[in-house]
């Protein structure tokens, strides 16, 4: 009996030890995208998927759990076990929800693995608009008021539009659209004077010449849009960026983080993802570890400030 018990203990000990030293990952990794397929968050992860699968030698299962501006999918991620087999395609949307005070979690409930890409918010007008620079648009918005389309109340683009109005001391007549497509369509048709959206979403419309970007919320002009001035150089103190990366529920094992960071660093070094990111209208801007944590905290504070009077 004693021998048997000893055997059991040994066996259990072996299993536990085996698990502790098992190499991550030993099974498929679920990646929650808290938006529907085809959105910015989805495209960036799907572009990354084959590269990560090759690096980690596992299958990445992308799950689109849409709803509530990302709240549904993020809640699901927070509630998942922190074993590295359920991760989240994270973005500003998390900080936006936090700033608006509509969700029970904050960014402190997540462990951030890496930030990969960034894109600016842009304010754009129809190519036939009478306002062909940011000064004339702001002037019109200060005297009369200008109709500005944005996607979704409480979305990060809506908050960005609000922040632009505050910093330029203008009054925007904000017109909420359910998505970027409808807002761009309205701007092209001249039903609204301007739109505020992320750079990736606007990319085709800008490239085709139907819409024209008047200003970017980046601190400096970006390589992909060298002709678009920043709000800073136009004299408005406003810097906002959309970022996208990978996160998991709080308490991810160090090994998981290490594996992922190594994989992403390798992908960045190989260089093929940079071209993809640029094609999608975004820029590669990798960040890891302590620097990343500081960046997220800072970004959360910026979003809180930008949300200002919109917050609940």
């Amino acid at each position: 009996m004693k021998k048997l018990l000893g055997g059991f203990t040994l066996a259990i000990g072996c299993i536990v030890a085996g698990q502790a030293f098992a190499e991550y990952p030993t099974k498929n990794v679920d990646m929650i995208v808290p938006f529907s397929a085809g959105g910015g968050n989805d495209t960036f992860v799907r572009a990354l998927q084959p590269l990560v699968e090759e690096q980690l030698d596992t299958t990445l299962v992308i799950r689109n759990i849409a709803g509530g501006g990302g709240a549904v999918g993020m809640s699901r991620a927070v509630a998942s076990p922190a074993d590295g087999y359920t991760l989240l395609a994270a973005s500003n949307a998390m900080l936006t929800l936090e700033a608006m005070g509509t969700v029970p979690f904050t960014h402190d409930d997540f462990d951030f693995i890496a930030k990969l890409i960034e894109e600016p918010y842009l304010i754009a007008v129809s190519s036939e608009s009478p306002y062909q620079d940011i000064e004339s648009l702001v002037e019109a918005a200060q005297s009369g008021s200008v109709r500005v389309g944005a996607s979704g109340v409480g979305s990060s683009a809506h908050i960005a539009a609000n922040a632009i109005a505050n910093r330029t001391e203008s009054t925007f007549n904000l017109i909420p659209y359910p998505g970027g497509s409808e807002a761009m369509s309205a701007a092209m048709g001249g039903h609204v004077e301007a739109v505020v959206l992320g750079g990736a979403e606007l990319r085709s419309a800008l490239e085709s010449g139907r819409l024209k970007a008047l200003a970017t919320t980046y601190a400096e002009r970006s390589d992909s849009l060298p002709d678009v001035p920043t709000f800073q150089e136009s004299g408005y103190d406003l810097t906002l960026t959309v970022w996208r990366g990978i996160a998991g529920p709080k308490g991810l094992p160090d090994e998981v983080k290490k594996e992922w960071v190594a994989a992403i660093q390798q992908i960045v070094e190989d260089g093929s993802y940079e071209q993809t990111a640029n094609n999608l209208g975004t820029e590669l801007a990798p960040l890891y570890g302590d620097e990343l944590e500081a960046f997220i905290d800072e970004s959360a504070a910026t979003m809180r400030e930008a949300a200002g009077d919109l917050a609940n």
């Binding site: 397929a37 085809g38 959105g39 495209t43 369509s185 419309a205």
Partner: peptide, 21 residues
């Protein structure tokens, strides 16, 4: 012709094109 996807499926196809530049 406009780069405006009407629904999620169209957005996916737009993404596929964009990835290819």
């Amino acid at each position: 012709t406009l780069g405006i996807p009407g629904d999620a499926v169209m957005a996916l196809m737009l993404g596929a094109l964009l990835i290819h530049g």
